[in-house]
């Protein structure tokens, strides 16, 4: 463990039959920090997590977790990781308590420790009231929390969270975020995958944007946002004649247009004044617009900026 990096990925490639899923990934995660892998479905996020957690063999490259080689030292890697996958991997018919104690025993804690740890985690994750109910009666948010709790039983130094909030309602998502934030404070190294820019922004120290099996951007959330702009103004123009005029009027601004839908998306870098200026330009040139709206940057914006195509275009299943 000479390095200061808990996770090191170099030149990682993986193909399923003739589909190239990972096309040479290089990533490093510093000890005690969180990296978010941000990307649409099919980008290869889950594949990376499955390789890191020794569940999947890769074609070429070098991958180490906590100083151990994922291929040659799988057992040592497994002793140092916690995995929370996309679907809460719990036994539905057992209670929350039973699940935790069973998993604790499988992590080879003594009976006493397994029980003690289960109680601690139920407390931490606000599941004490539901401890003795079968998991099948749990809400989506409760399942995810219990699932995360299971991967924390052996207090591993490295944790993989694969889309921990996908499909959760906003309140459960917030609760989950709070739990995850505390983990980072506690010096755990975390690799999180997400489709939500906001989530990566809220939680991670660094973000790597993945598209089509490649890392297309990497940096802190501020660095990424400066590329994308803080907000964008979307104008829908009335007809094609007005649209042409609008495009020429706004020539000095950074924008992305869609001729068919007659939309213009302008990146707003300096706030309200800039918006006011744009609107008065529109007004002065009597461009007729159908609607206007202001958007926070989304994954789509990152993708539009970085790749020129929308995130939704991907059809390949992320498996």
């Amino acid at each position: 463990m000479s390095e200061n990096n808990a996770i090191v990925i170099e030149g990682l490639t993986k193909s399923y039959k003739d589909v190239e899923v990972l096309k040479g990934i290089d990533l490093k995660v510093e000890r005690g920090t969180m990296l978010a892998l941000l990307g649409p479905n099919g980008a290869g996020k889950t594949t990376i997590v499955r390789i890191l957690s020794t569940l999947l063999k890769y074609d070429s490259g070098k991958v180490t977790v906590h100083g151990y080689d994922v291929k040659d030292q799988a057992h040592e890697v497994r002793q140092n990781i916690g995995l929370t996958s996309q679907y809460a991997a719990l036994d539905e018919f057992l209670t929350g308590m039973d699940n935790l104690v069973m998993m604790g025993r499988l992590f080879h804690l003594s009976k006493e420790d397994a029980n003690k740890r289960a109680h601690e985690l139920l407390e931490q994750f606000d599941l004490v009231d539901a401890a003795n109910r079968p998991v099948k009666t749990y809400s989506g948010g409760m399942r995810r929390r219990l699932d995360l709790a299971v991967s924390l039983i052996p207090t591993p130094p490295v944790i993989f969270l694969d889309e921990p909030t996908t499909g959760l309602d906003p309140r459960s998502r917030l609760a989950m975020w709070n739990v995850i934030k505390k983990l980072v404070e506690a010096d755990v190294t975390i690799l999180l995958t997400t489709q939500y820019l906001e989530e990566a922004d809220q939680l991670a120290d660094k973000i790597a944007v993945i598209d089509n099996g490649k890392v297309i951007a990497e940096g802190t959330s501020d660095e990424l946002k400066s590329k994308v702009g803080n907000e964008r103004l979307e104008l829908v123009i009335k007809d094609s004649e007005n649209f042409a005029r609008a495009v020429s009027v706004l020539a000095n601004y950074k924008f992305i247009k869609n001729d068919e839908e007659r939309t213009i998306n302008i990146t707003i870098d300096s706030g309200v004044q800039e918006i006011a200026k744009i609107l008065s330009l529109i007004e002065q040139n009597s461009v007729q617009i159908e609607s206007l709206s202001l958007h926070k940057p989304t994954l789509d914006d990152v993708f539009l900026q970085l790749t020129g195509h929308e995130a939704e275009d991907k059809k390949v299943e992320d498996k």
């Binding site: 020794t54 497994r78 996309q86 679907y87 991997a89 719990l90 036994d91």
Partner: peptide, 13 residues
């Protein structure tokens, strides 16, 4: 299907 076997495989057992 539930991912339980995947999870178990990530355990050192």
């Amino acid at each position: 299907q539930k991912g339980i076997i995947d999870r178990l495989k990530s355990f050192p057992i």
